[in-house]
Amino acid sequence: MTKRRVHLTFTGKLVEEPILWQLSQTFDLIFNIRQADFTEGIGWIMAELEGDPQRLENGIKWLEDRGVQVAPIEQDVVS
């Protein structure tokens, strides 16, 4: 089992979809939300994802393919 702390940004109609639920069902991942904020058309979630390392990778790729912006919880560390 591996853990990953991620910052996810959702825009447009992604905001209304149960994406984390779908993620957890499809890739057998546990998610634990620590902070989140949503308003019309945009939102973000800080969460810890846990699961099999390969499934975790695939799950993150799946999120990105759906248009979710996936970043480390520090967000941009390059500066």
């Binding site: 940004t9 825009t11 308003t39 945009i42 520090e74 967000q75 941009d76 500066s79």
Partner: peptide, 25 residues
């Protein structure tokens, strides 16, 4: 007037400021 910062893909000559998903935004 949006407290939520929307990440962008940087495209500018100001490379030292090219942070698309700012940690302290």
């Amino acid at each position: 007037n949006s407290e939520i910062i929307k990440p962008v893909k940087p495209r500018t000559i100001a490379k030292s400021l090219a942070i698309g998903n700012p940690a302290d935004g």
